[in-house]
Design a protein around this nucleic acid. Structure first.
Length: 572
RNA sequence: CGGGGCGUAGCGCAGCCCGGUAGCGCGCCUGCUUUGGGAGCAGGAUGUCGGAGGUUCAAAUCCUCUCGCCCCGACCA
């Protein structure tokens, strides 16, 4: 491809709308352009990258025995009403009506559609197991789209759905996908980690997220140093503290804390560590209110709280409820003397002695509060997010924390959807049985964005070879006949050798071409100039290292083939 | 949805507080010079100042409404 024939609008300056590295670089290098919030056009170069990622996914999915199909973007409300997700999915589900006033939505995921296909077309255990996948545009009306392709509203996703006879079969299907995902992300040149995860809106029994490790990640994961345990913080189990305090229980006192509401304000004011405070969070369950006690330096985990209460939705109580129950404005709730609510607490509250809590009165806190003496708790449980320094649930040391970008997610669904939609098959004895399902997603654009987050420098992107839009960026400097001849020769020779070559045939100065090439990030640059040709050589630059080789024209192709075979399969 | 901020030339921004009829850098067009890391000189084009309404002799600037976008918190590939 020649640059003169390609729409490749590179930007010299950072666009004002972009915050993260990948978002800035993908805009600057002319890969994407925004059409509306969270909705992007893939420009020619960006599409090439998307197609590369898709090709790797296809190969590995096919290799794992999955078959590709393509489901529609729009689906009728009836299917979603069958599983209850027409209401449960909430505002994120983009709904519309057709001309006959029938309800439709844009598919945010396709469990309903595939399960409907399965129940219509599959009858016998002989046909199982099955695994269907598609690579298709999804739409989720995200509350807050951000970071370019990282969290769009419209995005390309590979989603796969497996159907098995039984749990054992489903576990095998799950394992195949788990392994395939490892191969896919390795081949994309990413440093990643599979972690235990929560199942969220999709539902099901267990799941793993594939996290690309990057500081800009939106997720926090914890892992044991020994490497046997890794999980999303919202999922990670927190063991009860083993320590007991032998601190003497001091008498309860009430102290004035004028206008100090947050943990930080109160502990600063009283000059105590946040771990010496217990915060009282009031959650409404729809029917009643529950007080949740969490140590000041810990984060409440609403998923764990919901699970304990057996609910699917809880919400922090508003000021009106808080005032009614505690008799104080938000910021002064406490368990001492609190009436009319159930009180549950995180394990860590049990061992904390002489703590600070809200006074249920404006501008007042209690200090030297002790559980069992000053207040009662209905149940202690694991109700907080894990954090660095916690004991590993596998008892192999202490957890560390890092940020990650979720690029893939595999779920064991069990019979949730097959039951709701009656997706069954006949077993050898003629008995009707529910199919056991799994589902498996990969964000294609997000994977590309994650690759940029992990592979860049201050000049631009450094594409891993397997997903690079072009392998070689050919940079002729000047317009002399010798340069043109050498360029033409290399261009055709490299292409014949199977390399994807972008030739910068623009009438631009050397500096402009160098900078654009570094920005765009092809793994190799070949610089053809009169200066080098005069002594019979051109330069081959490796983008990642900046190393330059002076090579005779005739050697360029073989050397590049050599260099690239080492980077083709391995990461980077 | 709550909190904060921004919409002025293709892009990045200034001007707004304190109304007086729009500017800077980059890019773009022409010419000459230059030509191995975002060239120099000379000349040139480009704006419904996001939209609607209002106040005023006069509005990018003040007021009201509206649309869009970005950032911080609750969702997910």
């Amino acid at each position: 491809m020649r640059t003169s024939q390609l729409l490749l609008p590179t930007l010299r300056e950072d666009p004002g709308e972009a915050e993260t590295v990948s978002h800035k670089l993908m805009l600057r290098s002319g890969l994407i352009r925004k059409v509306a919030a969270g909705i992007y056009t893939y420009l020619p170069l960006g599409l090439r990258i998307i197609r590369k990622v898709e090709a790797i996914i296809r190969e590995e999915m096919n290799r794992a025995g999955a078959q590709e199909l393509l489901m529609p973007v729009a689906s009728p409300a009836e299917l979603w009403r069958e599983t209850g997700r027409w209401t449960y999915y909430g505002k994120e589900l983009m709904r519309f009506k057709d001309r006959h006033e029938r309800d439709f939505c844009l598919g945010p995921t396709h469990e309903e559609v595939i399960t409907d296909l399965f129940r219509r077309e599959v009858r016998s255990y002989r046909q199982l197991p099955l695994n269907f996948y598609q690579i298709q545009t999804k739409f989720r009306d995200e509350i807050r789209p951000r970071f370019g392709l990282m969290r769009g509203r419209e995005f390309i996703m590979k989603d796969a759905y497996s159907f098995d006879k039984d749990e054992a079969g489903a576990r095998l299907s799950y394992q195949k996908m788990y392994d395939a995902y490892h191969r896919i992300f390795s081949r994309c040149g990413l440093t990643f980690r599979a972690v235990e995860a929560d199942t969220g809106l999709i539902g099901g029994t267990s799941s793993h997220e594939f996290m690309v490790l990057a500081d800009t990640g939106e997720e926090t994961i914890v892992y044991s140093e020994a490497g046997t345990y890794a999980a999303n913080v919202e999922r990670a189990e927190v063991l009860p503290l083993e320590e007991t305090s032998d601190e003497e229980r001091r008498p309860l006192r009430s102290v004035p804390t004028p206008d100090r509401r947050t943990v930080e304000e109160v502990t600063d004011f009283l000059n105590v560590a946040p771990r010496r405070l217990v915060k009282t969070l009031l959650y409404t369950t729809g029917k009643d209110t529950v007080a949740v006690l969490i140590r000041g330096d810990h984060e409440a985990n609403e998923i764990k709280i919901q699970r304990l209460l057996g609910l699917t939705e809880i919400e922090l109580a508003g000021p009106a409820i808080v005032e009614k129950l505690t008799g104080a404005p938000v910021g002064f709730a406490g368990p001492v003397g609190l009436k009319g609510v159930r009180i549950i607490a995180d394990h860590a509250v049990k061992t904390a002695r002489n703590v600070v809590v809200g006074g249920n009165q404006a501008d007042t806190h209690y200090v030297d509060v002790n559980w069992d003496r000053d207040f009662q708790v209905e149940q202690f449980a694991d109700l907080r997010n894990a954090m660095a320094g916690d004991r590993s649930p596998r008892k192999d040391g202490v957890l560390k924390a890092t940020k990650g970008i979720e690029v893939g997610h595999v779920f064991m669904l069990g019979t949730k959807y097959s039951q709701l939609m009656n997706a069954s098959y006949l077993d050898p004895s003629g008995k009707e049985c529910l199919a056991v399902m799994g589902c498996y997603g990969i964000g294609v654009g997000r994977t590309a964005a994650a690759a940029v987050e992990q592979n860049h420098d201050d000049k631009g992107i450094i594409w891993p070879f397997p997903i690079a839009p072009f392998h070689v960026h050919l940079l002729p400097l000047g317009q002399s006949a010798t340069v043109n001849d050498a360029t033409a020769r290399l261009y055709s020779e490299l292409q014949h050798a199977g390399m994807e070559v972008l030739c910068d045939d623009r009438d631009e100065r050397a500096g402009v071409k160098f900078n654009d090439a570094d920005l765009i990030g092809a793994p190799y640059q070949v610089i053809v100039g009169d200066k080098g040709l005069a002594s019979g050589h051109v330069e081959v630059k490796t983008r990642k290292t900046g190393d330059k080789l002076k090579l005779a024209l005739a050697d360029v192709t073989s050397v590049l083939l050599n260099l690239s075979t080492s980077s083709r399969s391995t990461s980077n």
